[in-house]
């Protein structure tokens, strides 16, 4: 009897270890990399990493903390992540409540050497309408290209102050990209002008800044935070709204379960489509060359299909 128990226990242990060893390889590579004189920049989630890359180019080495394909709202750092953060020159996060875990980490590390940038600082934030969520502001500022430009600027300024030797390189990149962001803004304005409808039903309330910028209105199934079980009353309300306003498409996000969106879509006879709040991209998307600008254009096309 005893030996059987030991056997069972060993089996469980071995299975656990095999998985742990087999899977931990990929993540530790980032930490091992030496800088080759490059600025070591850590970012909280995908869009911050993308913005940093746009400015920093090949002068910086980026480590993105929230892995691709993971929802940043409820991500939790591993001890290894915190350790690697201590060695960073710059840490960029969005702030405004987007990354709940950042404050805890910043308190626990010795970050005298690390320059910390809260990229949403100083921007005019939207108040969170739904106070019970615990978030005071809507953090999804980057979805308005005009505010995203401000974030680029803050990132550029930080790089310049930490690494003044490459000042002109960062300035040049910044100037190139703001033009591209302006262009995106223009495309949005032109396309939205042709929309017959202004209401979009989305999975979570991430598109406040986007809607504000272009005169659209979002109706969100869930609040600003991560996913939770919606109340049936809320679902009925949304269904009613969608029926009354003849909503053709219910939007969901790739990082959140599409179950609720699908339920409502089948309720009102609508289709579902992806509207990406750029909280993270999957490896495949990154490989396919997707980044902020192209995803925002995909979003615009999705909006066009739904609202025209």
């Amino acid at each position: 009897m005893k030996s059987n128990l030991v056997k069972t226990a060993c089996l469980v242990l071995v299975i656990g270890l095999v998985f742990a060893v087999g899977c931990s390889k990929q993540t530790s590579e980032d930490v091992k990399a030496n800088h080759d004189g490059k600025l070591s920049v850590h970012t909280s989630f995908y869009t911050m990493a993308d913005f940093a890359a746009k400015i920093g180019g090949d002068k910086i080495k980026i480590t993105n903390l929230v892995p691709s394909g993971t929802e940043p709202h409820d991500w939790e750092p591993a001890p290894k992540d915190i350790a690697s953060l201590e060695k960073a020159d710059v840490f960029i996060y969005n702030g405004a409540g987007m990354e709940g875990w950042v404050e805890k980490i910043l308190g626990s590390i010795n970050n005298e050497k690390t320059t910390v940038l809260e990229a949403s600082k100083g921007l005019k934030l939207l108040e969170n309408a739904d106070k019970d969520e615990g978030l005071q502001y809507d953090p999804h500022v980057w979805l308005n290209p005009a505010l995203a430009k401000k974030q680029l600027e803050a990132i550029k300024n930080t790089f310049v102050s930490v690494d003044s030797a490459n000042k002109s390189y960062y300035e040049k990149n910044y100037n190139e990209y703001i033009l591209k962001f302006d262009e995106l803004d223009k495309e949005y304005n032109q396309t939205v002008a042709s929309f017959s409808k202004k209401d979009l039903v989305v999975a979570h309330e991430a598109f406040g800044y986007l809607c504000n910028a272009y005169g659209l209105k979002q109706v969100a199934i869930e609040g600003l935070g991560a996913e939770s079980e919606p109340t049936p009353a809320r679902m009925a309300e949304i269904s009613k709204f969608a029926k009354e306003n003849e909503v053709k498409v219910i939007f969901f996000e790739e990082l959140i379960s599409p179950k609720i969106a699908e339920t409502i879509a089948s309720e009102v006879g609508a289709a579902t489509d992806v509207l990406n709040p750029l909280e993270g991209l999957s490896d495949e998307q990154v490989k396919a060359g997707k980044e902020y600008l192209s995803v925002m254009r995909d979003n615009l096309k999705a909006l066009e299909r739904a609202l025209k």
């Binding site: 919606p230 990082l255 699908e262």
Partner: peptide, 29 residues
């Protein structure tokens, strides 16, 4: 413990989420 460790290796957390998440008001056919 296993779920905690293994979930860290799931590349697409959306897929994970949709299997984790059960709600009586969101039942598919």
């Amino acid at each position: 413990g296993l779920a905690g460790i293994l979930s860290g290796f799931v590349k697409n957390s959306a897929a994970f989420g949709s299997f984790l998440f059960g709600s009586i008001v969101a039942i598919s056919d």
